[in-house]
Design a protein around this nucleic acid. Structure first.
Lengths: 339, 339
DNA sequence: ATGAAAGCGCTAACAG
DNA sequence: CTGTTAGCGCTTTCAT
């Protein structure tokens, strides 16, 4: 079974490459090619397992039917799941996906964007480091289809699909309040990401609305790349220092996991001594001791909608759709905030 | 800033496309192009942000500097982590990666393989459904570079990187034995995968060597797509039936998580009533109640070595390297098997 | 209904 | 050292 080309099948069938190409691209009817000829071509192609060279096709067409996905880290279960749903939805629309991780590095992100453009992807879905305004603006300027996911640039007008971070954390904090907690702390990471800023605002807003005071040791923002170490001090200070908390809001799943580890080491009982709650969750948060109450992000919808917006833009269907989406998180109530 | 092409820079500099192409591909010296000319070209290209069209390049060269990765499911943390390490290593060698999930569907896997070939990937890394002997043989026949990862075909000679499943589970079972357990059961999924077969064999071998009898309700193999439901019956039968077990080996992380859930529902104490142990782990197995002892797969090495073998083959370096690798798992002892 | 021919952007013989 | 030319495999215009 050797590789077969368009010209082979044209020659074999005594037709021109044009006819064959047309038929194979489902444009036989509109070009009035006889049903019979069409059938001969289709049958022959199938029988001989004809597969067009996508590079040639892409070069000629100026597009690749591929969309690029850039995430900070594909081994983070959150982004892996997004990738999963992006892939499924993309396939529905007939697109393949190429992915790459920026590893939270802006320089890498920049390279990735251009590398993907060179490879002629038709559109881009980006979970940006958010320190790359320059390229985002350039993409917009050259009118290249793209949508930001999970992280957007609040001051640049683009397509995006994000989550209501402020509302999510506000709900979480209120949940703690409703469970009788009055000394609520926050552990987050030091970061310029708008998402993290919003989460902090959500926490602060909830406390303010409930007329709770934020003591100065209530908010801990630790270094993302050293969080395991810094978590130790943060937790210790919150539960053994002068202003003890009776509840902690964690702004990411890995912080919650790490924080719980420390609480256990200090023999703090959860939730009786300190309640905890997490923004987003790991696979086994329902099995943890105690099962952790968490606000879950709708990764499936995020992936789906990002693709939907992108394809709409690539194919210029001119269907007016909402291209700035802010999705709600969902609170999964378990045991870590009391009964 | 408009898009610039090879011919533009040739024209602008009063040179031929050849000269420019040569220099840009670092072959200026070997073609004796004057240092000065080279510098002019390089500078101009950089200044104008020249980016070669990779489709044109690929078409001409017959290769794409891209490798394809096919996994059963990118949202499974195990494969996501493999993808992560594959990507990093690939980048080191100058390759991009395109991924797709087969969703454990052989037909999809077949399509994916050909779709990737059409897109001119230079090589393939496949975690196969293992029901696709046909295409694996075909790839071998046409001499296309590929390496199997995680799952191989025991009766086909190919490159592969897998894990010592039999040894891993045998160790796990022995660990249970050493902790005093004598009535050890196994929960696995119904599957033709060699990996799962090997895991069962490892279990059986350990019991035999320790002269333990395998009662007929000790081994449960449940449907992978309905495991949550079937787990209920399986666990019930093992812990409440006539031949009660005092330990359970789970052959995958999701089985262990699900099994533990059921044990908790039945108020079975782990590990005092029943010890459990898991092949591979989820992110938070150390936080679970009790922390689950697990045999961890070396995903980093798997990804790295697969790329290494593949690139070696693509570039025909003729360096003789071992192309059938069986890596060891590592037992992480926690609390779920007793102290 | 069909075919010839040009072109997508790049590489690489080969001739000078 | 440099330029001409053909060609990678496919699409598409235009003439027939």
């Amino acid at each position: 079974m050797k590789k077969i080309f368009l010209k082979d099948i044209a020659k074999e069938l005594n037709l021109s490459k044009t006819a064959v190409s047309l038929v194979l691209n489902n444009r036989g009817d509109e070009n009035k090619i006889s049903k019979d000829t069409q059938k001969r071509i289709l049958d022959f192609a199938k029988k001989n397992n004809y597969r067009p060279n996508q590079m040639a096709r892409g070069l000629s067409l100026g597009k690749s039917e591929t969309i690029g996905l850039i995430v900070p880290n594909i081994s983070d279960i959150f982004y892996a799941r997004i990738a999963h749903f992006v892939e499924i939805k993309a396939k529905e629309y007939g697109y393949n996906v190429v992915f790459s991780s920026s590893n939270e590095n802006t320089k890498t992100e920049k390279e990735l964007i251009y590398s993907m453009l060179n490879r002629q992807v038709d559109g881009l879905i980006i979970a940006s480091t958010q320190k790359n305004k320059e390229d985002i603006l350039k993409l917009r300027e050259i009118n290249f289809p793209f949508v930001l996911i999970d992280r957007h640039y609040p001051d640049i007008k683009t397509n995006f699909v994000i989550v209501d971070n402020l509302g999510g954390v506000k709900n979480m904090t209120n949940h703690l309040f409703e469970n009788g907690r009055r000394k609520i702390g926050l552990v987050s990471v030091k970061s310029q990401l708008d998402a993290l800023l919003q989460r902090r605002l959500g926490y602060e807003l909830a406390l303010t609305e409930n007329e709770l005071k934020i003591e100065n040791n209530y908010i801990k923002e630790i270094e993302p790349f050293n969080f395991q170490v810094e978590m130790k001090g943060a937790i210790k200070d919150m539960v053994q220092g002068p202003n003890k908390v009776d509840a902690i809001v964690f702004t990411t799943h890995y912080l919650a996991a790490s924080g719980l580890r420390e609480l256990k080491l200090l023999n703090i009982e959860v939730p009786s001594d300190v309640a905890i709650i997490s923004f987003d969750e790991l696979g086994a948060f329902d099995l943890v001791d105690p099962p952790i109450t968490a606000s879950k992000q709708p990764v499936d919808a995020m992936g789906n909608e990002a693709v939907e917006i992108l394809v709409n833009e690539i194919e210029k269907k001119n269907i007016e759709i909402e291209n700035e989406r802010v999705l709600k998180t969902k609170l999964l109530i378990r045991k870590s905030c009391g009964v």
